[in-house]
């Protein structure tokens, strides 16, 4: 995946400045920075949700998101929350439910699940879509330490199993390290990728 961004503005305010971002197949990348710097805006551009930017995006065929909130369909049960967005069968959905520790809960509605369970369901949904590249936006931010650690381990395990690439947006470098992700910093106004040139060049040999 490659993004050459010239500029993303909201009104007169430039939020994101010129930056180039490249992720190789199966590569894990973390975008770090203080809150409000434009990390989520950058991820929305990568997900194709924000097309109102100047620049060029070459996205891989299959991407899947994990958002800050679980964003499940409250009116569909846990299993349908996998089968509908990921377009998979019921049997495969049950395997994913078991993989994230939700076996037997396929008929529960999201409201009948704890927040931790909802998070794991959202994670399973993203992996069930068989993405080449997983895009996560602060997925551990509002969790307690123990739950966050469990989610991180689960994410690491499933990334290794599937070989999917990762773009993780977070304010916490420890999450990036736990997922063995290359770190880039977003800073300034309009924001640019600090350290991007050298680190990206080290990692891919083609970025500038």
């Amino acid at each position: 995946m490659r993004l050459e961004l010239e500029r993303r503005s909201f009104g007169e305010t430039g939020v994101l400045g010129r930056l180039v971002l490249e992720v190789a197949r199966g590569e894990r990348l973390a975008i770090l920075g203080p809150s409000g710097i434009g990390k989520s805006t950058l991820l929305r551009i990568l997900l194709g949700l924000d097309r109102d930017f100047e620049g060029r995006l070459d996205a891989p065929e299959r991407t899947a998101p994990v958002f800050q909130e679980p964003l499940l369909l409250p009116w569909r049960d846990a299993r349908a929350n996998l089968t509908i967005p990921a377009r998979i069968g019921a049997a495969e959905a049950d395997r994913w439910l078991a993989r994230v520790g939700l076996e037997g809960l396929g008929h529960r509605y999201p409201r009948q699940l704890s927040l931790g369970q909802q998070r794991r369901l959202a994670l399973a949904r993203a992996f069930a879509a068989r993405p080449d590249l997983l895009m996560m936006d602060e997925p551990y931010a509002s969790l307690d330490a123990a739950t966050a650690a469990r989610m991180l381990a689960l994410t690491e395990g499933m990334l290794s199993e599937t070989g999917a690439g990762l773009v993780l947006v977070t304010h916490d470098p420890r999450e990036a390290e736990a997922l063995k992700a290359r770190k880039l910093w977003l800073d300034g106004r309009p924001a640019r990728l600090a350290g991007a040139v050298t680190q990206a060049a080290d990692a891919t040999g083609s970025c500038g």
């Binding site: 997900l47 998101p65 958002f67 967005p85």
Partner: peptide, 9 residues
Amino acid sequence: ALDDMAQAF
């Protein structure tokens, strides 16, 4: 937000 989810998938 759900609209974004549907679009992202």
